[in-house]
């Protein structure tokens, strides 16, 4: 093939690739529509994970502003919404990290958060057994009707919000975001055994909280 023919082919192919796919399948950004289109969606995503409406609103705003600043990095391969969520995810993980680094200033609180002292007997022949009233009472926590189901969902949300931040971030990453343990450890800068102690502690608290609200 001579060089002119080759160049011709290349130019045709290029032309083709432009004309057949005029940005088709490629997503574009429309920042002026973001708040209206994705405001609620991002807010929902954030509030489930940070459980604080003010913090969630701030995260949504920061996400939009960072996204706008980084708009040139958007390749159009994923949808606008997916791209915004990926930015929000990073921001949420940063919030978790901050919660973890602030634990050093109050190490006593952290120790308190992960100690089992208030659930089990600490001495006597029944050391390690459930303290009176701290173990489970009812057998089932399952809702029966749709109404109960809805109620349980709001109880879960309330109970997550009542977890100490140290426990909440690990619990949410693992249970809500379904992140791998390695990833949670890496993001939060904790060891695997520490993570399991934290998760166990969070489950103890969550179970107690759900049961007490559920039985009311």
């Amino acid at each position: 093939m001579n060089s002119t023919r080759f160049l011709y082919l290349v130019s045709v192919l290029r032309l083709d690739s432009n004309s057949c796919m005029p940005e088709e399948g490629k997503h574009i950004l429309e920042p002026q529509q973001w708040v209206e289109r994705y405001g609620d969606y991002l807010y929902n995503y954030a509030i489930v994970r940070v459980n604080d409406s003010e913090k969630a609103e701030d995260l949504v705003q920061e996400t939009f502003l960072s996204a706008f600043k980084a708009k040139d990095n958007f390749l159009g391969k994923s949808s606008e919404r997916t791209w915004l969520i990926s930015i929000l995810k990073r921001k949420i993980i940063d919030t978790y990290r901050k919660q973890y680094s602030s634990k050093e200033s109050s190490m006593a609180d952290y120790e308190q958060d992960i100690s089992d002292g208030d659930f089990y007997r600490s001495e006597g022949p029944f050391k390690g057994h459930w303290l009176e009233g701290k173990g489970p009472h009812s057998h089932s926590l399952m809702p029966e009707g749709e109404l109960e189901q809805k109620e349980l969902m709001s109880i879960i949300q309330l109970c997550i919000s009542m977890l100490p931040p140290n426990l909440a971030s690990a619990f949410v990453m693992k249970m809500i975001d379904e992140a791998e343990s390695d990833e949670v450890c890496k993001e939060l800068g904790i060891t695997a055994s520490n993570l399991w102690v934290i998760l166990h502690r969070a489950r103890l608290k969550m179970r107690k909280c759900i049961e007490s609200k559920w039985l009311k």
Partner: peptide, 18 residues
């Protein structure tokens, strides 16, 4: 035993919540 049962239920409920 109750605890183990409730934790299983709680995991299911958290899945539903998500």
């Amino acid at each position: 035993r109750k605890y183990a049962h409730q934790i299983k239920e709680m995991n299911l409920s958290v899945d539903k919540y998500r």
